[in-house]
Amino acid sequence: MIGYYPQQRAYADPRESFIDQHMPLSGSNYSSAEQYLEANGSSNWFDIKLEYALPWGATEAGGLVNYEIKNGLLVSAPSGGSEWNPLTTGASVLVLRQFNRYQSFEFENDKLDGAVHAIELGILYDNTDFPINPSYGSSQYLSISHDAGWLESDSQWSFINLDVSKYFSIGPSEYASQRVIALNFWTGYSPSWELEYNDNNDRRVTNSAPYNEGATLGGFYRMRGYDQNRFHDKAVIYGTAEYRYTLKANPIEDIRWLRFLHLDWFQLVGFVEAGRVAESYKTSELLSDIKYDYGVSIRAMMAGLVIRTDLAKSDEGTNVWIMVDHPF
């Protein structure tokens, strides 16, 4: 993706600047929503991902799993969820990703820019019945990312990530073909992240992931009531719960000129989220002054993809996000 954006925003401080000791770092948990950089600039990225399905469980016979669906719901055998055993159920996948980003902020008398050239190595165990739209089971993803300061990268950093989801089916009802409670927990830690101080005890962050990588909250995946990448720090904790109610009724099913959408169902969702970033991975810090938001969502299965529109409210405002896939 190569793009140039007007009024590009980053809740971050210039990397070389020391911040007054009495002022919170931009993007930290106690920072103001008015602490950001904004200017026209480029945002270009290029990712390469290799996934290897391990030869056991649902992928014992091959790397692909076939699913048969009717009206957007699974009718063939599920790939997982009946028990937690990677050797017999679910899919275990090794992930290798090389990702790159260049971003610039072109102010009237100055220009800030930076690049990322990093590698992520992870392992996923997806033990859900139907990964596109899970109704029961669980998934776990553990990974580590590292940027060694290659090429244009001017910082070395590392980040460890754990993402866990659990799904409970409570069955159909008079008006719903499927009702699901979905839970997600995410946490991460950057061992390379450090604070450097000058003679005035002012500080700046070194060896950290950029504001849009690593321990980051806010946007269309996590903490949807806040701006994109609103919070970031050394450590992060996040949890959410969703109630997904898939309607039996499909008001556009018989509208001939809309059949090209291949729309199988509509889904109503209510959700709550809580999260916190911090300068250390301490329970006393991560579990105090937690940020919260809540919202509703309308989702649809179109041509085998879940499309969602989320409306979320927090203490900093209300956001609307339009995105592909469930957030987890």
Rank of each mutant, 00 (worst) to 15 (best):
I181W: 08
R308I: 01
Y11G: 06
S314H: 02
Q8R: 10
D233S: 13
P86H: 11
E34I: 11
P172G: 15
Y197P: 00
Q178A: 05
S169Q: 06
P210D: 03
D325G: 10
G41R: 01
L94D: 10
G3A: 05
K166P: 01
L121D: 00
L112T: 04
R276F: 02
S43D: 10
W257R: 00
P6R: 08
N29T: 09
V164T: 12
V296Y: 10
T216S: 14
G171F: 03
I132V: 15
T309P: 00
T309G: 15
H262S: 14
R101I: 07
E68L: 10
V75S: 04
Y292H: 13
Y281N: 07
I2A: 13
T89H: 07
D113C: 03
P172L: 08
I160Q: 06
I123L: 12
N198C: 09
V93K: 11
M223T: 05
I290F: 10
K313G: 03
D126P: 05
V116N: 01
S165C: 09
G62L: 03
A176Q: 14
R259C: 04
K282V: 04
Q103Y: 02
L37I: 10
Y52V: 11
P78M: 05
T283Q: 15
Y281P: 05
G188M: 05
A241L: 11
D129L: 09
R244S: 11
K111A: 11
G63H: 13
E279W: 11
E120Y: 08
I119K: 09
L142C: 02
T187D: 09
L195N: 11
E38Q: 14
Y11V: 03
W56E: 01
L287V: 02
E273Y: 05
G3D: 07
S145M: 11
S153A: 13
T89I: 01
H146A: 15
Q140V: 15
S135V: 07
I119W: 13
G80C: 04
N40A: 10
E152M: 01
V205P: 04
F271T: 02
A58G: 07
Y281C: 05
G317D: 13
S138P: 00
R230L: 06
A241V: 12
E68P: 00
N133L: 12
Y294T: 10
F260Q: 13
N184R: 15
A115N: 06
S135A: 12
N250I: 10
S32D: 10
Y5N: 04
D110Q: 14
E60T: 09
D293H: 06
N44R: 08
A312L: 04
F168P: 04
I48S: 09
S76M: 08
N109Q: 13
S138K: 10
E242L: 03
K248R: 11
R9G: 02
V296R: 08
